[in-house]
Amino acid sequence: MPSPAPQTVRRLSRHGVVIALLALILFGYLRYDNFLGTFNVLSVLRYNAMFALVSLGMAYVIMTGGIDLSVGSTAALGSVVAALLSPYGLVPGLLGGLAAGLAVGAVNALVITRLNILPFVATLATMLAASGCALLLAGNQSVSVSYETGFIELGQGDLLGFPVPAWIALAAFLAGAIALNLTAWGRTVLAVGGNEEATRLMGLPADRAKASVYLVSGALAGLAGVILAAQFGAGQPIEGVGWELFAIAAVVVGGTLLTGGVGSVGSTLAGVLLLGLIFNILNFENGLGQISLSAYWQSVVRGAFLLLVVVIQARLAGRTEEPA
């Protein structure tokens, strides 16, 4: 029976991101005026909803031991397609962006599962292809959305006093948590990440599960692109640069192993909020006038924070493996 100390360390390793998030919120509340004000809270939720959707899809991919570098370019492509279709109404714009994301996800799934190409190489290729398609469709410029069809409500609207993008992200995460924890699909996804060959020997549909996570990742990235276009009033063919890095960071900070087999939807959401609040706090610091950090330095700070969290998690994981 494991001693109390390793059990405590294991809990800290599993819930460390939540503890860090609560500590960051407390710090911001004590240091800045209006940090927990309605405007700031809703702004953070509205803006980070896009990153939450991309991170959710990335979490599933990483749980299988894969990686999806194409999510940023897919979101950019989805935003352009949605903007081009927005004059026809909210639904065509939404479905168009989703379809664009699904198309990229389908290519990833086919190349990885049927042609046995490494996910890093396959998604790097589709990242370049999706970026090129977005630029071609947009004519190398932003594509304005229609303000007359209600399309912008997907990004700028509120429902029951809560941003519509946040509602969409919340619904996606609730459905994602149920799918991962309460369905055979979720168990198969984790099994593939733990040991793909053993999963096949048990008769589980390993290839089908691997293909499905790339379809989900592509669809969620496309949906994030729809929100991007609706929120900023234009399809952005050069947007999405670095989104894959944010998503990977949020997933890793949330405790999902890059080697696969272990992961949590809830902790991924906490990771998204944690990284989003770091930028928010840095903006508040700039506002105080005591320091002045450009966007470049903010990226340095967030990268250093990510490295610190990963090192701490690795140390905690190592301690849980020590004999009692």
Rank of each mutant, 00 (worst) to 15 (best):
H15W: 12
V253E: 02
P2Q: 15
L118I: 03
G254I: 02
T8R: 15
L124N: 10
Y47T: 15
R319Y: 06
L24M: 14
L308E: 07
A221W: 00
F162Q: 05
Q298S: 15
G240D: 02
L160R: 11
L36W: 03
P92A: 13
Q298I: 13
F51I: 14
G101Y: 04
A5H: 07
G37E: 12
L159C: 06
F151I: 09
F246Y: 06
G287W: 05
D68W: 07
P4S: 12
A166N: 03
A76N: 10
R315M: 13
T259W: 00
L154M: 07
S146V: 05
S212R: 05
Q7N: 10
T199G: 05
L84M: 15
L56R: 15
L308Q: 06
A52G: 14
A130Y: 01
M1I: 13
D158Q: 12
G132T: 05
S3G: 09
L124H: 06
W243Y: 08
A20R: 12
F120W: 05
A184S: 13
L170E: 01
S146L: 01
H15G: 13
L128I: 13
I281R: 14
T126G: 03
G276Y: 01
V252N: 09
I25V: 15
N280C: 11
G101A: 09
V145C: 07
G65F: 12
A5L: 13
Q141V: 08
T123Y: 02
R31Q: 11
V18A: 14
L293E: 09
I152W: 02
N108F: 02
I248T: 06
V80H: 02
L273G: 07
A99K: 10
I238W: 04
G287Q: 14
A249G: 09
S212D: 00
L53W: 11
A224F: 01
N280H: 13
V301D: 04
A177W: 05
L215H: 00
M58F: 03
G255T: 08
I278E: 07
P87K: 11
V265N: 05
L307P: 08
S299C: 12
W243C: 04
